[in-house]
Amino acid sequence: MNAQGFKRLALAAILAVAILAPLGLKNYGVYLLSLWALYAIAAQGLNLTLGYAGQISLAQAAFFGIGAYISALATTAGMSFWLALPLAGLACFIIGALIGFPALRVQHHYLAFVTLGFNVLVFLVLRNEEWLTGGTYGVANIPRPALFGLSLGGPLAFYYLCLALLVLMTAMFWHIVRSPWGRAFAALRDNPERAASLGISIVTYTLLAFAIGSAAAGIAGAAFAPLVEYIDPTPFTLSLSLAFLLMVVVGGQGTLTGPFIGAALVTLLPEWLRWTEGYYLMVYALAVMVLMVVCPSGLTGLFDMARRRWERSP
């Protein structure tokens, strides 16, 4: 089987598992799956910024948070979720483009620090501006939406909403990376100087990469708010941004399936490692270190290596 066919098969398998997985699960299990779907959307966004366009960002949790707050504040004030969702995406698109400006001046580690700084600043604003965000008290009673009169309030129904969002967003990313934009992103990542000499605008595409990646986090966050029904600033710290980065790199940056696997590891692994009691984060951290030493291209890279070896053997 060629690589393309393998990729399609992998995506189809993931979708099939994702549709069937919640049947027979208790509410908590369904909640975890919903969380996985939303994390995967945000990770897809970061994957575009980082994996395809080569710009590191440690502010993904900030956009996830901005999206969540916009949706929470808008829907508790009576706005429809179906309006709040694109609004959150649009707001994050614009703020993401602004955050992209530093990337035009500085690269790599500097950019990591600027975005990291932005994430902490957003957290401080969420915590301190009580008049707007409710501060540490947060926003409660966030309603879950209905679609054509059909309530999506139940855990299972809401999970399928999250999954539908994930499928839509994945289709969008699939289209983008295969479009001329995707080619321009890849060219910029490989060699910005040469790309510019061929007429590719570094400014436009860098800002676009940030804006699209951030918008994805905003949309995921907008659905996160009704999922948990109560938000305060605590989930949106730097740790979550680091977790998103882990999802992308551990899953395999620059691949379409990588973020799914990465997000699954971050949300589900702690549950599977329950038997290790308090040790799971240590086991997890250790596994990440070993993976980075052995195969820096992440798990999909590891699968590729295994597949090629398997194909070569008679």
């Binding site: 882990l246 984060l281 997890y284 270190m289």
Partner: peptide, 16 residues
């Protein structure tokens, strides 16, 4: 391996 994998590894080391 480049800068990024090492960044990830030190993040993991910190958590560990």
């Amino acid at each position: 391996h480049g800068v990024l994998p090492l960044i990830i590894a030190t993040i993991a080391l910190g958590i560990f």
